[in-house]
């Protein structure tokens, strides 16, 4: 079993005709992901890579009954696209789009909770089960199938760490980006629960960064629940100044809240080893001898 996506995943791409949407649809198809259709308002009736394009998710669903969607729609319209997917019964949604306003994201997450749907993102590289399927934009060649689960708030930093794991022959079960925004669908605790149930996953790498308290809450959860699988953490932003937004909308220290020190301290007191540099993650994992 793998986390969230598997061979039965049938996905649509919202915003399939845009530059990013079409580019990554091609890469996902090449990787073996089952994409069944695309949606771009105004482009209904056309085709791209032999896939039918529809004006609405409703019509795509009438013909294809997809169970997942990946969204490449520009920020001002992305919340509308996500709500459209939710109202048409899609239960797994990956929102690649960045710069979605907080108010819109809050609205989308509230609707997703109501219907029991899973949202990955916004501002995420997506999710990949190496050598099987990906709903996302990550460069697939740096991943290798194996037993390490990765959950992260950052895209390229995940690639950096995944590539170093792959070089040391530490393959990955599933890699998932929560997204760099303040409001995201999944959080670290949700993902830790999924990795706990997944028999393929033997250890978890948790990549956090400054801002918010999702890492602290994850550390408390690991301690409280005596999380049964080993977790290695890396936190970006040790050198970040307070009050400055470090690229990601969510990466900001407000006053004294959300610092790297606070997160690292919490993890260490929960018995989680924290890597000092990205390259150290693979070494800490290798010591676990799993």
């Amino acid at each position: 079993m793998v986390v969230i996506i598997d061979e039965k995943t049938r996905a649509i791409v919202q915003g399939i005709t845009g530059a990013q949407g079409s580019f990554h649809t091609k890469l996902m198809l090449e990787y073996g992901t089952k994409i069944v259709a695309g949606v771009t308002p105004g482009k209904g009736g056309t085709k791209i890579y032999d896939l039918p394009v529809y004006d609405t998710v409703e019509e795509a669903q009438e013909k294809h009954s997809a169970n997942a969607s990946i969204i490449f729609v520009p920020a001002p319209f992305a919340a509308d696209a996500a709500l459209e997917a939710l109202e048409n019964g899609i239960k797994t949604i990956v929102i690649i789009t960045e710069h979605i306003p907080i108010k819109d994201a809050v609205n989308v997450m509230a609707h997703a909770k109501k219907v029991g749907a899973t949202i990955i993102g916004p501002n995420t590289p997506g999710i990949i089960t190496p050598e099987k399927s990906k709903l996302g934009i990550m460069p697939a060649h740096i991943f290798k199938f194996g037993s390490i689960g990765i959950v992260s708030r950052s895209g390229t930093l995940t690639y950096e760490i995944a590539a170093s794991l792959t070089r040391k022959n530490l393959g990955q079960s599933t890699c998932l980006g929560l997204g760099g925004d303040p409001i995201t669908g999944l959080n670290f605790i949700d993902t830790l629960k999924m990795f706990e149930k997944d028999t393929q996953t033997k250890a978890v790498v948790l990549i956090g960064e400054i801002g918010g308290n999702l890492e602290e809450l994850a550390a408390e959860y690991i301690m409280r629940e005596k999380y049964p699988k080993p977790v290695i953490a890396f936190i970006a932003g040790r050198s970040a100044p307070p009050g400055k937004r470090m690229g990601h909308a969510g990466a900001i220290i407000m006053g004294k809240a959300g610092t790297a020190e606070s997160k690292i301290e919490k993890f260490q007191s929960a018995g989680v080893k924290v890597a000092e540099k990205p390259g150290d993650v693979a070494e800490l994992l290798a010591k676990l001898a799993i």
């Binding site: 390229t156 930093l157 960064e209 970006a236 040790r238 970040a240 990601h248 790297a260 990205p278």
Partner: peptide, 25 residues
Amino acid sequence: IGNGAGLVMATLDTIQYYGGKPANF
């Protein structure tokens, strides 16, 4: 200069780890 917020943050941290001082993100 780097690509991706997390990677750039980690780059600043690594510079600091080796005793240097970043001028910017």
